[in-house]
């Protein structure tokens, strides 16, 4: 989406030029105060990617990204529901931030250096990777068994330019079958046309939460990438605030909120952070 990128950059430059003129007052006019005065948070997120952000049967926006926004709303107003959602496509994440259409964006945004030049990232709240989904009663028990089977194994994967390369970096000899949509990929696994499905760890976990005891995780994940929320650049006060909230969600007083959400969407019970010396400085 080169056009959007160009637009975003152009907008940032315009915004920078404008803010340079009024930089004297920038310190007092933090987004933090603006949001507090407004009384609700405007969160940019998507609506078509479970377990991150999706619309459930009751037409409610749900997911792990949504919960991160709720965590921030709770920290702001003591009420996680004080949010106005802006449903945006993945391409709209950065433009909507720089044009002030949203206060922050939490939408499974992979942290990259290119993006960091256009917006500011918060600390990461999840580390994504690619995993392998197996049938619970299948021929192969885990990653080692798959690897040992060499080219007897067919891996189903979502169509993508790098799909073959991606699978081969974990299973060098496996056959790779690419599919147009997630449902077709899972069907290939169900029908035995593929022995494993390679997909995002989060999607894999979510699928296992929805279909308990039918599938298992091969226990190997690769291709790490960090997911962070994004804010408009140039507002350190606001960025610090969101960072503090996320940090305390993962390590401090709001850990139960974070852990509950993690369990809901990824089916995994997190261990309580070790009491004593702060774990992040070890």
């Amino acid at each position: 989406m080169t056009f959007l990128k160009t637009l975003a950059v152009a907008t940032v430059m315009t915004a920078t030029a404008v803010s340079a003129v009024g930089s004297a007052s920038a310190q007092e006019a933090s987004k933090l105060q603006e949001v507090l005065d407004r009384g609700y948070l405007i969160l940019g997120t998507g609506s078509t990617n479970p377990p991150w952000h999706f619309v459930d049967g009751d037409n409610q926006l749900k997911g792990f990204d949504v919960d991160m926004g709720r965590l921030v709303a709770k920290a702001l107003f003591g009420d996680p529901n004080k949010i106005e959602y802006v449903q945006q496509s993945g391409d709209a994440r950065i433009p909507n931030l720089v044009t002030d259409k949203v206060d922050m964006a939490c939408q499974f945004m992979t942290v990259t250096a290119e993006r960091a030049q256009q917006i500011e990232f918060t600390i990461p709240y999840y580390r994504e990777g690619v995993g392998l989904l197996l049938m619970a009663n299948g021929d192969y028990a885990d990653y080692d068994a798959l690897k040992a089977a060499g080219d007897d194994v067919t891996v189903a994967v979502l169509q993508n330019v790098y799909a073959e390369e991606m699978v081969h970096s974990a299973l060098p000899d496996a056959e790779v079958d690419q599919y147009d949509s997630v449902d077709l990929m899972y069907q290939a696994l169900n029908s035995g046309r593929a022995e494993a499905a390679a997909t995002d760890q989060s999607a894999l976990r979510w699928f296992m939460v929805q279909n308990p005891d039918r599938y298992q995780d091969a226990g190997y994940a690769w291709n790490p990438q960090s997911y962070s929320c994004g804010v408009k650049p140039g507002d350190q006060r606001w960025l610090n605030f969101v960072n503090t909230v996320l940090h305390e969600g993962m390590t401090g007083v709001e850990f139960p909120f974070y852990a509950e959400s993690f369990k809901t969407w990824f089916g995994e019970e997190l261990e309580t952070p070790k009491i004593g010396f702060p774990v992040e400085y070890k």
Binding site: F54, S89, D183
Partner: peptide
């Protein structure tokens, strides 16, 4: 308009697909 987040018929459909995996 789905690209800028207006939930018209196409985006509403995509939202249902993402939940049900019944894309076709």
């Amino acid at each position: 308009l789905s690209i800028i987040g207006v939930v018209e018929l196409l985006l509403a459909t995509q939202q249902v697909i993402s939940r049900t995996y019944l894309s076709l």
